[in-house]
Amino acid sequence: MHIPDGFLDPKVSMGMMGAAAAVLSFCFAKVRAAITALKPAEAFAAAGKNIGNITGRMRRVLTGDGERTIYKMGMVAALIFACQMFNFPIGGGTSGHLIGGVFASVILGPFAGAIVIAVVLAVQMLFFADGGLLAIGANIINMALFGAIAGYYIYNVLKKFMPEWGAISIAAWSSVALASFMCALELGLSGTVPFSVVIPAMLRVHAVIGIAEAVISLVLINLFRGMLKAEG
C-alpha cells in the first residue's frame, strides 16, 4: 500500500507531510519521556571541576530499560521490513503484504510502534524506491497513524471483551481496512480518481489482505513474545 509519487497532488502530499511531522514529533516526545529519566546534574559533577556552574540543573539520560527498548524497536522494524518483502498471493492476480502496525504497537506500545513503521517506510522510500518521496507523509499517516496507533486502540478496547487473540485479529484486520480507506480518500482528494470508484475498490481488495494481516500478526506476536521470554 505504498503510494508512489504522481498519485497525490501537491496540496494533499504537503498537507499529509505536515500531519505526519506533527504525529511523529508527538510520538518522539512520548517515547523520549518513556526511555529517559531526569537525573540531577550532581550525578555528573564528579566528571568536572565547574560544579558551581552545573549544580541544581537536571539532565535527561537514557535508562538501561530505555536502551533495551531501542534495540527491541530495531528488531521489530527489521522483522516488519522482512515481512513486507513477502508478498503473498490473494487470488485474482493480486498480492498483499503485511503492514505490521498492530504487531509493532502491541509489542512496543502505540507511539514506539508508529515510529518503527515510519522508519521502515523511510528506509523503503530512500533505498528501495518503494513509496514516493513526496508521498512519504501520506504513507506515514496511513500506515503509522491509522495502522499502528488506531490499530492499537482498537486492540486495547476489544481486549476487555474477548480473548487476546480475537482482539489482535480484529484490530489487525481493521488497521488494514482503515489504512486502505485513508489511502483511497487521499487519492480521491487529489482528484486522481473519483471517490465513488476508488473507495469500494480499495476496501474490497484490502478486506482480503486484512485476513492475512490478522493471521500473520497473531503468529508474529506469539513468536516474538516467546523468543524474548526464552532469552530472558
Binding site: F7, N87, F88, G132, V197, A201
Partner: peptide, 22 residues
C-alpha cells in the same frame, strides 16, 4: 514472494491511473 501487483498497484491498474506513477 508473489510477483503479482499488491493491493494499491492492482487497484491503480484496474481503475486506470497506474500510468501516473513517477
Amino acid at each position: 514472494a508473489s510477483a503479482a501487483p499488491d493491493g494499491l498497484d492492482f487497484v491503480s491498474q484496474k481503475l486506470g491511473f497506474a500510468h501516473k506513477t513517477v
